[in-house]
Design a protein around this nucleic acid. Structure first.
Lengths: 141, 141
DNA sequence: ATTAATGCAAAATCTTTGCACTTTC
DNA sequence: GAAAGTGCAAAGATTTTGCATTAAT
């Protein structure tokens, strides 16, 4: 039952973890598959944990948090700060910005080339601009 | 002892609260003075509470939270989301953006005209862009 | 075998709430 | 004196930590 369809994604995700220097444990593999095999995604720890439960993957919430942070540190995910109450993680590592739908607390990507920021001021000496985040806060009406 | 210097700011802050439809209670007046008589400021609830203690103003942390939210709702403050762990409030209501110094967790204003965002995409039908936040995340090196 | 990762529950934050008491109008 | 605001402590929510157990190399 190990046909091309099931083997390829497994290998992809596995290599991705290996390359990042993370041991491909059962939990990390399972979470990575949920995260990276579904296109661009925006998840919170709570959401990913619930999804794992549904998929019959036994993993604790603490491990989900740890894993999300490890993936972020390893450059597999990016943390997006839009809500002071919750952390969101984005699987899209390309240069881009976000819509944040305040009514539904949903994030949506805006392709990088659709927002252009000019006249960026220079930061104080000895500092570097690590990232430019543009968030379009959207609500009904 | 009621000379111009002491009367004027008091009246300004008082009117500001009145205009906003907020009763000028002892606590609100004291917090408003701390917030609005020191130029543009970025505070957390914890910071403002500590400042009040130092100034011998007896006010509970819960009241500081309530007051910050009331001021925000009344249009006297603006909440800035840069850290998923803490809420920041900005006394500068003019159109502008922010530097966020990740090493020190400090916010700094960037005048509105120094950042220009073009090519803003249109949001889905029935939705409005309520605000465009640009955050330049800065760190050492 | 070594070393790293996991799970759990407990702790740590930050923020909100409920309700009796106090202050403002 | 009616209505609004405050304080406190308790509850909520999210996230992190410590440590014994389990799994990966």
């Amino acid at each position: 039952m190990t046909n091309k369809e099931s083997i390829r994604p497994y290998t992809q995700v596995l290599d991705r973890l290996r390359t990042a220097g993370l041991r491909p444990t059962r939990q990390r593999l399972a979470l990575a598959k949920l995260l990276f095999e579904g296109g661009d995604r925006h998840v919170t720890a709570e959401m990913l944990h619930a999804e794992a439960q549904t998929a019959a993957i036994r993993v604790s919430l603490a491990t989900v948090y740890n894993t999300l942070h490890q993936f972020t540190t390893a450059g597999l995910l990016r943390e997006i700060v839009v809500d002071s109450q919750r952390s969101y993680f984005d699987t899209n590592m390309a240069d881009h910005h976000h819509f944040f739908f305040e009514d539904s607390s949903q994030l949506e990507d805006i392709p990088g080339h659709e927002v252009i920021v000019t006249h960026l001021p220079t930061p104080p000496k000895g500092k570097t601009v690590k990232r430019v985040d543009v968030i379009l806060r959207v609500s009904d009406k």
